[in-house]
Amino acid sequence: MSSRIEILNDGGFRSDGRKQYELRDVLIDLSQQGTADGSAQISHGLTQVLVTVFGPREAKMRSHTLHDRAVLNVEMSVAPFSTGERRKRSKADRRILEMASMIASTFEPVVQTTLYPRSQIDIYVHVLQQDGSLLPACINATTLALITAGVPLHDFVCAVTGGVHSTSPLLDLTTVEENDIPHMTVAVMPRTQKVTLVTMETRLHVERFRELFELACEAGQTIHKEMKLAVKDRTVVLVGAMDAGLKGVAVDDRDRDVVMEDRI
């Protein structure tokens, strides 16, 4: 595989200056979006995704209800300006539909759907910017949006991509790297270390798989810490505001954005 761009140079740096196991900056914004029950915006470097959650609510179509649990309905839209090349994609694009169904199947075992029979949980994923690791960003944002909506989950779901350049594994790939090297996406539940999603679109050598898989699981734990911090921060702010309101003390309006710097 010959490429103009050096994926990993002799000094051990990648094309965007990161080390092998270094993740990109994670920025999480959990502020309220319109009338949505929950929403989250996450950026992994230049990949930015906004997810809004509505529900659990009455299903729009009777045929879509299940008598014993809620239905997860994932709809995904990719902004035309999200890629370097401006390109309009319809919602019925096969790739987009497939990714939406992957998100739905990732969350089906995690959301406690049995608590909401005959209901529907709508998850709207908006891709604002793409620079690799799109599916993990969507999954992480969906986790956060579901949590802000107060939907009961068994655990967080934290996803990350990993790839292999000759023999050295890399984490959190950018578009350039994804185009060049074999990679896979792993979504883990950090508490039990169960894996809810593993997917590959390229061929990966079987002997490299184990190492990469374990590395991705470990990276998931790191992302979990960031997500947990953001959620806790928001909860503390809201609970604090409510207590202050009840006691009649002024509320300091803290910035709810959480920025994380330190990485593995």
Partner: peptide, 8 residues
Amino acid sequence: QRITGPGE
């Protein structure tokens, strides 16, 4: 008040 999150 103790604050907690999913999976904790």
